[in-house]
Amino acid sequence: MPYTLGFTGDVMLGRSVSERQRTRAADAVWDGALSRLRALDALCINLECALSTRGRPWRRTHRPFHFRADPEWAVPALTAAGVDWATLANNHLLDFEEPALCDTLGALSAVDIAHSGAGRDERAAWAPVTVPVGDLTVAFVSATDNTPEYAAGPDSPGVARTELDDPTERGKLARAVDDTLATDPDLLVASLHWGPNMTTEVFDSHREVGHWLLERGVDVVHGHSAHVFKAVEVAEEGLLMYDCGDFLDDYAVDDVLRNDRSFLFELTVSEDGTPQELRLVPVEIRNCAVHLADGEVAKWCREAMRQRSRDFGTEFAREGASLVVGC
Rank of each mutant, 00 (worst) to 15 (best):
P2I: 03
Y3N: 02
F7L: 11
T8I: 04
L13K: 00
R15L: 11
V17S: 07
R24H: 10
A25R: 13
A28C: 08
V29I: 14
V29N: 00
W30V: 02
W30A: 00
A33P: 02
A33G: 04
L34Q: 14
L34G: 12
S35W: 06
L37H: 04
R38H: 01
D41Q: 09
L51Y: 03
L51V: 09
S52R: 09
S52M: 07
R56E: 12
R63P: 00
F65M: 12
F65R: 08
F65L: 14
H66D: 01
D70A: 13
P71H: 09
E72K: 12
A81F: 07
D84F: 03
A86V: 13
H92I: 05
H92E: 03
L94M: 11
L94K: 07
F96I: 04
E97M: 09
E97Y: 02
T104Y: 01
S109V: 06
A110E: 14
I113V: 15
A118V: 08
G119S: 03
E122W: 02
W126K: 06
P128V: 02
P128I: 07
P128D: 06
V129E: 04
V131S: 05
P132F: 04
V133A: 02
G134P: 13
D135G: 15
D135E: 14
L136A: 09
T137Y: 05
V138R: 03
F140W: 06
F140S: 10
T147L: 15
P148N: 12
P148H: 13
Y150I: 06
A151I: 11
A151R: 12
G153A: 15
P157E: 07
G158D: 14
V159M: 05
A160F: 07
A160C: 14
R161S: 14
R161E: 14
E163F: 12
E163H: 12
D165L: 11
T168E: 13
G171V: 10
K172G: 12
R175L: 13
T180D: 05
D186T: 04
V189T: 04
V189L: 05
A190P: 01
L192I: 08
P196G: 06
N197W: 11
N197L: 13
T200E: 15
V202N: 05
F203E: 11
H211G: 06
W212K: 07
R216C: 08
G217W: 07
V218P: 02
H224E: 03
S225E: 08
H227G: 07
H227A: 00
A231Q: 01
A231K: 05
E233V: 08
V234D: 05
A235L: 14
A235Y: 03
G238C: 07
D243R: 02
C244Y: 03
G245Q: 08
F247L: 06
D254A: 11
R258T: 11
R261S: 03
S262L: 02
T268F: 05
T268D: 07
S270E: 12
E271N: 07
E271A: 14
D272R: 14
R279I: 07
P282T: 04
V283L: 13
E284S: 06
A289D: 00
A289R: 02
V290A: 10
L292P: 00
G295S: 00
E296I: 01
C301P: 08
M305D: 12
R306V: 13
Q307L: 14
S309N: 13
D311E: 15
F312G: 10
G313E: 11
F316Y: 04
E319K: 12
